[in-house]
Design a protein around this nucleic acid. Structure first.
Length: 490
RNA sequence: GCUCCGUUCGUCUAUCGGUUAGGACUCAGGAUUUUCAUUCCUGCAAGAGGGGUUCAACUCCCCUACGGAGUACCA
């Protein structure tokens, strides 16, 4: 019985504009929308706001789609998946915007403006620089044009925009789920543009029309939109449409203060991917920026977050992006992840570093990742630190070498162990471990005097998984060879 | 300049008038790991300031200060 979208459904949208990469602020907005939709059995739509042809960036769309999908923020309706309320690119809905802009003109609620951009610039300059600076804004120059004048100019082909007539002396009040009632005086608003000279709509017009026809029930967007909200209220009134429920999300600030931006560290979602951050770690971390489940719970599965998510638990204050905490959380999820899920990220990096060939046996790689994942904060770190499993160390940790220099029986210990390993008939992690223990006992030496030199000689570093496991993986011959080479070097 | 929003440990936050203001990250110390990391324990650390309302205010109201956003034919 219903064609298109049903009325009562919870429907939210994420509406990025294809001007560049998806940054974490946008990702957080998308994430809150996603969580809200899933929690309420609603729909999460993706709409592309490509109404500014001058800022369009080739490749931005792909980056946005990839980023969202990488984080698991799959949309129910939108580009590439379709839906009943399309098209989901605003550039493909131009006729709709024009139709409704014209309608407002006919109703006398909007008007054509023929002012040149030069005049507008000059106007703003005088408003800003005069002795007593006043609020800036359009001076309604063309609002008083008669119907005949407008007709003549239009017929003459003069370029024009359509502006909304802002009513005088009205208090515009709307509800924000997060902040409560917010009011603006209409006199502080100017007659803003609805339709540009090139026939494209401005954000204000397009977003109101689309949210209406896409039956968006809740608008969860960044709080930089608060000051535009009264304009949208006026538009909904002009059209006679019901407004959606608004929730303006607090911004994310950088650690150095100010809005998070590209200049202040890696702000794009894909940068975090490249750095070795797990998608769920970013997801979980971002969810906690501005929202809290209400108790002390921080590490959550997607299902838990969906279950616990409610709008009234979103705070109003801007939060600072704490990369240390993200790192901690990422480390937590890496430790928890299975070696199998980490493999696709780690293996290509190892090939890239020339430690292994692309056809290297995965089943041999799994145990190595297993040994290393617990001590890595980033996925990329795993590949970077397990070089010694595959290649002879080319350099030795300075601090560890200094300690070894103080040990006078160093060569003796290493020689004994090399000989010991070589003579093992049942070479395995267990037998190597047993060898270490019996050697320490007979010589009356602690692990620091035995294990440490071996570790440095074989791996080049002062820390890592149990040495007997490392040696078992590397193999008898290679281990002995590395020990002997190290002795030679001394 | 004007408009709007915000303000609990350094950071993310809990508290919806009555608490020794709790947790997490960071940092410091300790235990475990005969290494490192992990893990565990302990510690450091907060209601911007000033007025009200109330028996009682971090919590409600006002002012100030500070921070942020907007002020485009950008979103």
């Amino acid at each position: 019985m219903t064609i298109g979208c049903s009325m009562s459904e919870i429907r939210v949208r994420f509406a990025p504009s294809p001007t560049g990469y998806l940054h974490v602020g946008g990702a957080r907005t998308a994430l809150f929308n996603y969580l809200f939709a899933k929690k309420n059995g609603g729909k999460f739509l993706l709409r592309i706001e490509d109404t500014d042809r001058t800022r369009y960036h080739e490749g931005a769309l792909d980056e946005i789609f990839t980023s969202l999908r990488w984080m698991g923020l799959d949309w129910d309706e939108g580009p590439e998946v379709g839906g009943d309320c399309g098209p989901y690119f605003q550039s493909e809905r131009l006729e709709l915007y024009k139709k409704y802009a014209d309608e407002l003109v006919e109703k006398g609620l909007a008007y054509h403006c023929f002012c040149s951009s030069e005049r507008l610039e000059q106007l703003r300059a005088t408003q800003e620089s005069s002795e007593n600076p006043q609020a800036t804004g359009y001076d309604r120059h063309c609002r008083g044009l008669s119907a005949d004048e407008v007709k003549a100019k239009l017929a003459a082909g003069e370029p024009s925009v359509i502006r909304l007539k802002i009513p005088d002396s009205q208090t515009i009040t709307f509800d924000d789920v997060i902040r409560g009632k917010i009011s603006f005086e209409s006199d502080t608003l100017d007659d803003f543009v609805l339709l540009k000279t090139d026939g494209f709509p401005t954000y204000h017009l397009a977003n109101v029309i689309d949210d209406h026809f896409m039956r968006v029930s809740h608008v969860l967007r960044g709080d930089e939109w608060i000051t535009s909200a009264p304009k949208h209220v006026l538009l909904y009134r002009a059209f006679g449409w019901e407004t959606p429920i608004w929730a303006h999300l607090p911004v994310i600030l950088s650690e150095t203060g100010g809005k998070l931006s590209k200049r202040k560290g890696a702000a794009s979602v894909m940068d975090y991917y490249r750095e070795g951050v797990l998608p769920h770690a970013l997801f979980n971390f971002l969810a906690l920026l501005g929202w809290s489940p209400g108790d002390d719970k921080e590490i959550m599965t997607l299902e838990e977050m969906i279950e616990l998510f409610t709008l009234d638990r979103i705070g109003a204050k801007p939060s600072v992006f704490d990369s240390k905490k993200l790192e901690w959380m990422n480390g937590h999820y890496i430790t928890e992840a299975s070696a199998e899920t980490l493999l696709p990220e780690v293996k290509p990096a190892l090939v890239e570093l020339c430690y292994i060939n692309a056809d290297y046996d995965d089943s041999k790689l799994i145990p190595v990742i297993e040994m290393m994942k617990g001590r890595s904060k980033k996925v990329t770190e795993i590949a970077g630190t397990l070089n010694y499993f595959f290649v002879k160390p080319s350099e030795f940790d300075e601090g560890s070498m200094k300690k070894l220099a103080k040990q006078d029986n160093l060569v003796e210990v290493l020689t004994d162990i090399a000989n010991g390993i070589e003579s093992l008939t049942d070479f395995s992690a267990e037998s190597v471990d047993a060898l270490f223990h019996s050697y320490m006992e007979t010589k009356g030496l602690g692990f620091g005097k035995v294990g440490m030199p071996i570790r440095v000689a074989i791996t080049g570093v002062g820390g890592g998984p149990s040495m007997h496991d490392v040696i078992a993986f590397i193999g008898k011959e290679e281990s002995v060879a590395r020990l002997r080479a190290f002795i030679e070097m001394k």
